[in-house]
Design a protein around this nucleic acid. Structure first.
Lengths: 205, 205
DNA sequence: ATGTATACGTACCGATCGGTAACATTGTCA
DNA sequence: TGACAATGTTACCGATCGGTACGTATACAT
């Protein structure tokens, strides 16, 4: 079983000088480059160069570039739900406020120069093939997002929770994309306002 | 001046047998491959092979692959506004119905297997660099879309036309993306319904 | 028939792509 | 000290990338 080729990000144990694993440096650099400039646009040579390691090191920790891309997205997934759960935890028992907090945060993130949208969404655009390792991770992330949004719409007491949940997802994806298409002052800055209008119109009267 | 390297799609003049220009065949094939599988994913070799021409023929009609990609998007732009104007012309003087018709059409198009979203949006994701020839075309298309949607929101008598116009753009972009992320039965099928809810909630009372 | 211009094909370029073989060096722990 | 695992080094692979030098074929006008 080749399970020792998986990546475990062991946290520094504080004990003496634990040599920072090559795998972590590689994944960190790949994360940054893949997200900012796209997966197809980045070659493995640039990754190892910027990480200060060599190519064999990369292929000892990751079976292929495609799997490295999938690992990047798995890391992205973790941080994504961290941010999501922060917005949820900040507004306990109030799904409408939770959504508003999450979307306000997205709206703000889109209003910076060179905003690059959602790494999951971008990866799916880069790899139309549903069997690509990176796309598998991306699709699972989006399915989970849809599930949560529909559940929250139901908890809000929406007249048609699935439609509202899907509507919120459309607004979110639209914000990711238009955030990187238009620069500052683009449509994405209004995502929270529009979502709230849509929610208001979707609640049981 | 190298203006003779531009592309003019001369329509068959009906006069005798006008040899179907190589440039047209190349652009047709490139259009299909770039849209379905992505620009970065397709090499010029595959384009010329499928078009039944040779590489020098491509580079006689197009100065570079990047410019061929831009030409593909210019063609896409033409057809995009044709579809848009059809929805407008079908509902004269009724911007709300025009939007609804356009979004219903988008919603339907998303509900086919292997739907690939909007070629403009996808190109912008593939090329984050704002100076890339393909991205320039893409951004201009989106700016025009935003302009039209805001104008239509104003014509509907929206309380805040810019916000509603931008909200509609977010829903549209969300439909393009989620249409290719989720297969059949995805959130994009509800884009027209959600747009109508948003419009209803945004009109002056 | 011959000149001229345009369209096309063969063959090739250097660079980069993702990926690997074989071996040397290092640090850790027993 | 010895053993082991991780990383480094150098050099390489075949394939594909975007792009081009250069010769050839065809059409038309004179």
């Amino acid at each position: 079983m080749p399970s020792d080729k998986n990546i475990e990000l062991t946290i520094s144990d504080g004990h003496a000088s634990a040599p920072p694993k090559a795998a972590k440096k590689i994944l960190d650099v790949a994360y940054d480059l893949f997200y900012r400039r796209g997966i197809r646009a980045i070659g493995v040579d640039e990754i190892v160069k910027r990480a200060g390691v060599t190519k064999p090191s990369l292929y000892r920790s990751f079976p292929s570039k495609d799997e490295l891309a999938a690992s990047y997205l798995r890391q992205y997934d973790l941080e994504y739900w961290e941010r999501f759960d922060e917005a949820v935890a900040a507004n306990p028992g109030d799904p409408r406020a939770q959504i508003k907090a999450f979307l306000t945060r997205i709206g703000k993130r889109t209003q910076v120069a060179d905003y690059r949208g959602c790494g999951m969404t971008n990866a799916a655009v880069e790899y139309p093939d549903h069997s690509h390792p990176a796309r598998v991770v991306s699709e699972a992330n989006k399915q989970e997002l849809r599930r949560r949004l529909r559940a929250m719409a139901a908890a809000m007491g929406a007249h048609d929770p699935d439609t509202l949940g899907d509507g919120l997802l459309l607004l979110i994806e639209g914000a990711y994309i238009s955030g990187q298409l238009f620069g500052l002052g683009g449509p994405a800055q209004s995502v929270a306002r529009n979502a709230d209008l849509l929610i208001e119109a979707s609640l049981k009267k």
